[in-house]
Design a protein around this nucleic acid. Sequence first.
DNA 1: CATGAATGAGAATTCATTCAT
DNA 2: CATGAATGAATTCTCATTCAT
Lengths: 193, 193, 193, 193
Amino acid sequence: MRKLQLIEATLKSIEAHGFQGTTIVTISRLAGMSSGIISHYFGGKQGVIEAAVRHLLDQLKQGLLTRIAQAENPSALERLMMVVETNFSGFQRSSSVTTAWLSFWGQATHDVGLARLQAVNSKRLESNLRFSFRQLIEDPQKAAEAARMTAAMIDGMWLRSTLSADKDRSFKESERLCKEFIHMQIHRFGSLV
Amino acid sequence: MRKLQLIEATLKSIEAHGFQGTTIVTISRLAGMSSGIISHYFGGKQGVIEAAVRHLLDQLKQGLLTRIAQAENPSALERLMMVVETNFSGFQRSSSVTTAWLSFWGQATHDVGLARLQAVNSKRLESNLRFSFRQLIEDPQKAAEAARMTAAMIDGMWLRSTLSADKDRSFKESERLCKEFIHMQIHRFGSLV
Amino acid sequence: MRKLQLIEATLKSIEAHGFQGTTIVTISRLAGMSSGIISHYFGGKQGVIEAAVRHLLDQLKQGLLTRIAQAENPSALERLMMVVETNFSGFQRSSSVTTAWLSFWGQATHDVGLARLQAVNSKRLESNLRFSFRQLIEDPQKAAEAARMTAAMIDGMWLRSTLSADKDRSFKESERLCKEFIHMQIHRFGSLV
Amino acid sequence: MRKLQLIEATLKSIEAHGFQGTTIVTISRLAGMSSGIISHYFGGKQGVIEAAVRHLLDQLKQGLLTRIAQAENPSALERLMMVVETNFSGFQRSSSVTTAWLSFWGQATHDVGLARLQAVNSKRLESNLRFSFRQLIEDPQKAAEAARMTAAMIDGMWLRSTLSADKDRSFKESERLCKEFIHMQIHRFGSLV
DNA sequence: CATGAATGAGAATTCATTCAT
DNA sequence: CATGAATGAATTCTCATTCAT
């Protein structure tokens, strides 16, 4: 309840003031609460930041699960498309989220807690892709490679879009190219289709 | 001379203490100089940070130019390989540089100076790739797309390697896969070879 | 409450360390509070300085009002004496106040905020005097001149006393001479008495 | 030579940047010299400030002496007028000088060196006036009082003019009123004319 | 439980002084 | 003699954390 409001206020603050400019006061004011509440609920500033990262990761995970659940018995190819769509969903495109992601990456190298979370997320993306590719590409080696490349393509496209001037257009084009890349992979190596 | 030493100290400090933990004191101490020297040479902390980014961008630019100059009359394909090699060179893999890059990306969204530098760099990579792809792929649309995808692949692979546990292995594999991806593109669309 | 304590500490600090030697630390220490409190209450050092000036001006204004209120239906001449007495009252003679006034004058030429406050105060003294002189001197031109000269006499006497070695004696003598000067004026031009 | 240039630069700097904003760099830049030169010639910042005060006092002293020398055998009344004229001369009205005077007064209470210089100057003005008044007013007590009041009137008028919005007009009027005040004194007490 | 006033350590910046050239 | 690069102490301001109400 209040925790979630504070997490959302944290993302908003990072969007509005940047990671450096985000203080306990900017967060609590955006949440319409007192500054003391953050230490009370999260133990400190560090705590609410980590909680916000966890929230982003969870949104990504839940986004894919929801998509899969809504489709009935999706094919492997459909699942791959869903992975892409999830990573380029409106939520992941939103200013507050993109700015936060970038900041978190920068912090991750010096915060073991964030680093661990980041590693889990990174591996999950690749593993999700590999799972589906394996059903389409016979050679496990080739499937793993396809997953690895697709993961990089998704992250790279997302990164370049986030940092581009015309984000909306760029995100749209990125999603298209990622999907095309997946088809390219299957076309080349696929033998099980 | 002294300016370069301070820039290198800045990168070292970001590696050692993180972007947030980097202060004028950590930088000047690593450079073996007084704290006042930074304001004297760069006008302030902001100044030395921007100078450090410019330095990284310049290293990337010079790295490619040097590579091209050393080869005599490199083919378009060779040039593409050189772009990849430059982005995965030892310098770009070094801890101080990778941590700095990540931090800079995080800052770029709230610092117009850094944002501009980042935009220039991003466009240069894509434009370098497009230039070479155009000599190998007849359809300019396809060549542009190949450049765009390759740029994302390079950035994504670099990002994932930087954040991975076994960076060395990951960087090596990343370079291989990026090159393979270029070949894949030319194999599919190439008609001018 | 706390604001007033800080203002008094500011005056004490200027007395003890001079205007230049007065820092946020000397003020807060004299007030027995933390240094951060000044930014919290006054927005910064500049703020507490301006508040202190306002306080001095207010004391001067209230000093006269109180004096007038205590007397019942004072005559114009009595009011003129009260103006003099107020400007040479114990408060205005106190070290912390005299040092502060001198410093403020020095600052006023380069601080628009202080300059405005100083102008208000200067005009109030002259206008108070003019009001009473008009009831004693028929010619308004002469009354205005008397006010102007008396204001200068008061400021000049106060200034010279403040900077003199034997302040106490000098202030006493100054008050006497200022009053004598007023009588001199009325004796010369007065026609309404 | 160089010393004088630095003193003039000091006054210019106080005019341009205020007393607080005046640094060794602003002074030396205005003098077109290096920053080190000040320590070399005056031993430090404090030194050049004191030298500047001495310069102002000297200008005031010399101003009167020159005026007296130019007139041949001036009468006591003429000498009194000259004292007033000297204190309201163009030099004493100039921005760089007025700002400096005010700053010096503020400093004098916490700098024994400046305090001594200020005392000398203050006494000289009164003593100059007393010398002439004694030739016009028989009662030495009355003559001393006239000198004391005139000195205060001059300082007060100068102070109020310096701090007023329309300095030029105010200085002119001040000079007139000070002279009128002197005549008023002689008219009242004078018996030797 | 929630608030927000108060603390004080830490940061960037300024600047008088020094000293090698 | 003169310079100005380098130093580092001092200052202001920020802000995470604490705690009495």
